[in-house]
Design a protein around this nucleic acid. Structure first.
Lengths: 199, 199, 199, 199
DNA sequence: GATGAATGAGTCTTCATTCAT
DNA sequence: AATGAATGAAGACTCATTCAT
């Protein structure tokens, strides 16, 4: 009996977060009203408050859920030993894109909203900072493997390289959502060129 | 007489935009109220509407002014022929940081808010997309110079390289405002390592 | 079977009223929510409506039960022939205090809430007015006895005296719950002095 | 110019408090909604919040204003040397009644609501406790004068007597608002009888 | 007989904007 | 040219009550 209740609870929470994502995608996080989420979710006003503590709680959980989902998608990629740096970058960006593309909305603009939220919501900031630190740790390990395999200059600190790699991924997201004219392939080609020796 | 009036007008507009920046930095763009800007600027409610068409107009102009200011700072750097790629990247990121650091606030978090606004305000998006396209054009020219000087593999399209470089800069801003633990130097070291041949 | 059911019913009703008293004491009558009473009683939402018609019904019954309980306590005192007026007043106030002091709450503040409710709930008002009229009738009888015994001026109408005595008791409750610095003893001393002839 | 603005402010605040009194009288304090006060005052929702910090602030100020008004009315009576105890009591109760009777509402039920509020709002309680302590201090002085004039037994502490007198007044208010069948005259007659020696 | 999930109407409060002075 | 008082529409959130299971 508690199992059913718990499953029910999770289903409802998912239903609400899904509605929230669609709204955030359409209008942005702050401009989205509880009314928007209520209508979109098909539930009642009070139901929202049975499953979440309020708007801030929904925002926090929506962001947490997407970061969690992304981590699940990225981890196997990080462990794949077959990819050299340019291939890896291309696959990483593609994975982000595929992960973000949902039915009726896309998580990338929502990620940008999340960064904005993080500027004045310490809880959101900590959540994102923790997730991004985790990704960077995985990237650093990856860099060490490349260095061991002779695919990357061994003179650079893996942490520095991970920092720069992470910037490429995050900056890719910014360009995808603002100028909307960047591609994983172009980034991979640039990376390949950088890693080749100049004439 | 119109000259004085015009100068007065520009002074007032600057006063309001400055107040808006401080508020945006403290509370974010959407959560900032007209009342906040009124109090911060020391002007009256009606003054806001004499010098701007409303809140959206203030947001748009605040973003436009900061992008314009950044362009002015970055252009000379783009033209400096003495810098090799890693040096250039380090100087570029440092320039962005110095430009953004203001008395009482910092423009980088506000830039992040701007990206968020751009997701559902086409006017803001166009403004930013245009500015970023301009930066990227300058980067592409720069890349061509490096290729001509043999500092960079000539086999890559300058546009692709500019795309990736821009991502590094934008991603740097994301990390600076979210994880708050990245440095221009680390990015430059990573770039230098990438451009060296692996052992 | 109906007997057990009836006993069960009364136990549940008592449980709910007890929870309601604790809530009323903590938060006041109107600010107390059904949710508060549900949690405090350990019963379910529907149980509230099985045993009472709704919130108003709970309020009414909580007040009725306390007035009924007070009557049971006061009646023997009213009949006690050994007490002269100041002694009686002291004992009356003490009895009220002892009666009101419960485990975890006190009925005096709840009485004040009841007066407030009575102002716009005619059912509550009638209930209280009836109870207070009953107390006053008992007081009038008491006054007649004192007059017969020569302890009180016979020239005053027993009803008038009962009115004033009742005011003393009710005003005592007000002061106990608001200024919180009055005592039965002080009231009794004042009464004793009034009944002595001035020099 | 500031003078006009200040006068305007006070006029508006008075207008709002007056509307609040009428609503409190009709529905009670807690059941009165901001909407009620808005409609009754003829002002807009936002105007309420320009002149008061919220509902609680209106409640507090409405109570404070009535206590202040009562003090102004009672002080001259307290100073009148011509009244003996029963006369004084009668006049005191009459003064309270006359003071409380307003066009369209009566402050006595509102006083009862105030007592109820005081039970869970420490600010309200302190306000009322302070006012009542002030009244009692005046009553104690009055009692001393009567004792000096030989109208009252000198053996009683003036504070005790003031306590009891205050109870009579407050209890009178309770009975007026609940049983609605008490009169200043009856209380005065009872007091007169008490102060006469029994036969 | 009992539960607790669900609701819709309602509550307080805020905000961008305007307009009489 | 400037003010600041005023507003209406909307925002987040709560609550007494019901009903399917």
């Amino acid at each position: 009996m508690p199992k059913i209740s718990e499953a029910h609870r999770e289903r409802r929470r998912g239903q609400i977060l899904d509605a929230a994502w669609r709204c955030f995608f359409r209008k942005g996080v702050q401009p989205t009203t509880m009314e928007d989420i209520i209508v979109e979710s098909g539930l009642s006003a009070s139901a929202m408050y049975r499953y979440f503590n309020g708007k801030d709680d929904i925002i926090l959980n929506a962001i947490a859920a997407s970061l969690q989902g992304l981590a699940v998608r990225i981890e196997p990629l990080m462990a794949d030993p077959a990819l050299d740096p340019p291939q890896f970058l291309a696959r990483l960006l593609e994975t982000v894109e595929v992960f973000a593309a949902r039915k009726g909305f896309n998580l990338l603009p929502i990620a940008v909203h999340g960064w904005s939220e993080a500027q004045h919501d310490e809880q959101v900031r900590t959540l994102m900072a923790t997730a991004y630190a985790g990704f960077r740790r995985m990237l650093a390990v990856r860099v060490q493997r490349w260095q061991a395999a002779g695919l990357l200059d061994a003179g650079v600190s893996p942490e520095d390289a991970a920092q720069a790699l992470q910037s490429v991924v995050l900056g890719y997201i910014v360009q995808v959502t603002i100028t909307r004219d960047v591609t994983p392939a172009a980034h991979a080609r640039a990376a390949a060129a950088a890693l080749r020796r100049g004439p």
